[in-house]
Design a binder for these strands. Structure first.
Length: 313
DNA sequence: ACCCAGGTTGTCA
DNA sequence: TGACAACATGGG
């Protein structure tokens, strides 16, 4: 069995500086579920079949990989948008006329959308419903360890759809997926018969892409939006999750708006870079940094009901 | 014991 | 269409 020997640390220049705090938000803030934090602000993760460590450094990132792998550097340049293409996209957001957005951008200045692998993104967000990020990370890690190709030590690639399609009930059960196991299996059975689905879907318009993704079991509007944004790099895609619902309700006075309506609001208000706006709002909301206009705290409004089941009518 | 979690699906009216 | 509960599992 090969042993884990790291390459020397190398430098990856980025168009913009990145701080340790920002790196943490990007790698562990719900875009990817594959990174683990180590001491000294180092992050270790598996991308595709590459095992990688990164840390913030002046002018960009320092990184190293398992010595027996190649091409990781090229992938990282894309992954972190080394050319800085997203800077323009951020500038195109309506922050000049939107103080809430301006504040959110300032909170996490330099935050970018990772260019993640569509396949891995889909698996991750198929696991995401009704789960915290930490739990999603655990499910994804277990899927890899159970059915993914071994890389080195305790590191594994994500399983292929073909492998997932023929996973036994026991294997899926061991991954603690709960009811999401049927999502994974169902989608796997569809996609194993469609090996070029990424290339095919990349050709679609974003609207068409969202429709196509939602034909897969376990993929609704929110998961599709995340896959389009993080996996296919569609910066206009605007995922509406519980945090965004709360953020828009409080900071934008959009109480009682349904997710579908909020998605439409995001699309029209934030425009071609709506996904980036979403990520700033999401991060700010999670950090408790959004100016909550007086009220709106749904959880405090909920009172426990009596023992009889709730009815409405 | 109870509530909630980067939602989706099935099932009622 | 549109609202709502069920869905498995783990942590606070």
């Amino acid at each position: 069995m090969p042993s884990l020997v790291w390459t020397e640390w190398r430098h990856l220049p980025l168009a913009e500086e990145i701080s340790p705090k920002l790196l943490q938000e990007q790698l562990d803030g719900g875009q990817s579920f594959r990174w683990q934090g180590l001491p000294d602000d180092i992050w270790r993760g598996v991308l595709g079949s590459c095992l990688i460590e990164v840390r913030a450094a002046r002018g960009g990132l320092d990184w190293r990989g398992w010595e027996k792998q190649v091409d990781a550097g090229r992938m990282l340049r894309s992954y972190f948008d080394a050319e800085g293409k997203q800077a323009l996209a951020v500038d195109q957001l309506p922050w000049r006329s939107d103080k809430v957005l301006a504040s959110a951008i300032k909170n996490f200045s330099g935050l970018r959308i990772l260019r993640h692998d569509p396949h891995e993104t889909l698996i991750g967000f198929l696991c995401s419903s009704n789960k915290r990020i930490i739990q999603i990370k655990l499910m994804v890690a277990t899927l890899a360890r159970t059915m993914g190709e071994h890389i080195v030590d305790d590191y594994y690639a994500m399983p292929t759809w073909a492998r997932l399609a023929r996973a036994t009930d026991a294997e899926l059960k061991a991954c603690a997926l709960g009811y999401r196991a049927a999502f994974i299996r169902g989608t796997a059975q569809r996609l194993e018969a469609r090996p070029h689905w990424v290339d095919e879907m990349q050709k679609l318009s974003t609207t068409e892409l969202l429709v196509e993704l939602q034909k897969l079991p376990g993929v609704g509007p929110k998961v599709a939006s995340c896959v389009a944004l993080f996996g296919f790099g569609r910066l206009e895609s605007f995922p509406v999750d519980t945090w965004v619902v709360q953020a828009l309700a409080s900071a934008y006075q959009l109480k009682r708006w349904k997710p579908e309506q909020l998605a439409e609001f995001g699309k029209t208000h934030f425009g071609a870079s709506a996904g980036l706006a979403q990520q700033y709002l999401f991060a700010s909301a999670r950090a408790g940094l959004l100016s909550v206009a007086t009220d709106v705290k749904p959880r405090t409004l909920k009172r426990k009901s009596k023992k009889s089941p709730k009815r409405r009518g």
